[in-house]
Amino acid sequence: MRTLLDLKTGEKAIVKKITGYSLIHRRLLDMGIVSGTCVQLVKSAPLGDPLEFKIKGYHLSLRKSEASTVEIM
């Protein structure tokens, strides 16, 4: 299973689904991480975590633990 964590800097991928149903996942959905959306890893923070993604034309930052719950194709 490939997740957002497997992306290299600058790489793009299509979201397959979010695994999990807690508050965090509800929030991810509201922020536009839905199946079929294109996500690009822009960079990681200077200390390595969190990560910055580009999605639907804006920039979103997620912790690694959160990014790992988003499955990509």
């Binding site: 807690s22 508050l23 965090i24 929030r27 991810l28 922020m31 969190p50 910055e52 804006y58 920039h59 979103l60 930052s61 997620l62 912790r63 959160e66």
Partner: peptide
Amino acid sequence: GESTPFVMELPP
């Protein structure tokens, strides 16, 4: 309970 999600927009 679960920790606060860090799902945060980085605005332009």
